[in-house]
Design a protein around this nucleic acid. Structure first.
Lengths: 195, 195
DNA sequence: GTTGATTTTGAGCGATCGTTCAAGTTAAAA
DNA sequence: TTTTAACTTGAACGATCGCTCAAAATCAAC
């Protein structure tokens, strides 16, 4: 049987993901994508079906990468909270200028697709719910480890974390406030422990 | 001499603003706008110069409307904090289903224009800075009224408020979590008073 | 080396994009 | 009433959009 695919699907999706993350879905043209992934339109469309299909796979991959990054920081830390804090500091401070965007790609997606019955709108909601569940399990571990008290549940800690994290990333999506990041992250974790 | 303009600039900008707010800049076509404001392309272009020009005026108008709304709640409340809380509750809870988007148009704009040297990117940063200054003056009033302690300054309260408010709006930009809004807003103001 | 299923290529389709401008309409000034 | 500057209209321009598909290239199987 014939021929083999010449591109590595993983790499293509990651490159596309970075472009979509930076520019958004509507501002990214298929020609931008062709150049970025070095494929001709026919190959892209036979592999992913449509621009929407490629975006869909890119967004799913983004959440996988994000969870992998968190796992990395967790395994490098004694505590769950320490791992999460290293993750937040890495995203908000260290990667601020090399990341495609300061804003979470999933948050951007949920903001961009306003049409309630579009596939991408539903995908964003679905992935957000999954991520919240993932965070919940982490905070339940933290509770069981005695890192956090039992006044509130894992899901409630997860909600609070998401509000703080999203708010911080949005706030630091601007120049000239870099020196505020470390103290505000510290404050965030002080507040978490005081809930 | 000659003729008078037939449209009311205020209304046109407000309608355009709602459409841009809902769909974003790139997903809103000039033909969408023509239909929404009931004007032909020539009139729009003679009045606003370009799609970007109309967006620019729409975004500026949005911030004016937002400040006006805050002023309204402030004059209906005994305290600054009470007014701000009524404002947050109105935006996050009451207007959730009639507003063009759950996300602040200014936050959306700052997320959408990634090109650092585009006019709209700079406009977003500029309006954000202005809004933070406006919030700072409000919190300074609250401090002087004795509503808040003097441990931190007005600008620091303003930053905290923005992080919480943006995070909350992003979190409640999804279906099925409505009953969490009131307790989380209460928590937000408890935290503000405890800083 | 030949075959033949599979993948890659890229010219180009129809649709839509932001925008222009000559022609038509309007109403204040003369 | 006539003039005339200002405003409105909408057909249409060139560019770009997402996407298609016939032809060329590729390589495992024989």
């Amino acid at each position: 049987m014939a021929n083999k695919v010449k591109f590595e699907r993983e790499n293509v999706v990651r490159v596309a993901s970075e472009l979509f993350w930076k520019k958004g879905f509507h501002a990214t043209s298929t020609r931008d994508l062709q150049e970025a992934v070095n494929m001709r339109p026919g190959s892209i469309y036979s592999a992913f079906g449509s621009k929407e299909g490629l975006y869909s796979e890119s967004l799913k991959d983004y959440t996988v990468q994000m969870k992998a990054k968190i796992e990395g920081f967790l395994s490098g830390s004694e505590t769950v909270l320490g791992g999460l804090r290293a993750f937040v500091e890495s995203v908000v401070i260290k990667e601020k200028d090399c990341s495609p965007s300061a804003i979470c790609m999933l948050v951007k997606a949920n903001g961009e697709f306003s049409d309630k019955d579009s596939n991408l709108h539903e995908l964003g909601l679905d992935l957000s719910a999954q991520f919240e569940n993932y965070l919940s399990t982490l905070f339940e571990q933290a509770i069981n480890n005695g890192e956090l008290n039992k006044n509130i549940t894992g899901i409630e800690y997860a909600r609070f974390f998401q509000v703080q994290f999203t708010g911080l990333r949005s706030y630091f999506n601007r120049p000239g406030v870099e020196q505020l990041a470390q103290p505000m992250i510290s404050q965030m974790f002080v507040l978490i422990k005081s809930l």
